[in-house]
Amino acid sequence: MNATGEKQAEVASDVRDLRDVPLALVRQAEFDEIVRRILPDSPDVRRVQVAAFNSSI
């Protein structure tokens, strides 16, 4: 048996762990990232959040 303190190598995903985040508090940035990943062709998903032109409204 391995020493109890030995840490197993982990591979990190880009997918945020939302299991314990209350649904009402799941932030747009968090779900946008996930939806972009699993639905890259979705028309309702902004691929990259970009900065809007300052000198017009």
Partner: peptide, 25 residues
């Protein structure tokens, strides 16, 4: 299966956001 839980919660939040009060999609 555990990671799928996060994906489903994100999708549901995205559906709610897109169907939001501002007229959404």
């Amino acid at each position: 299966a555990e990671s799928q839980r996060s994906l489903r919660r994100a999708l549901l939040a995205a559906v709610n956001s897109a169907a939001g009060a501002d007229g959404g999609a």
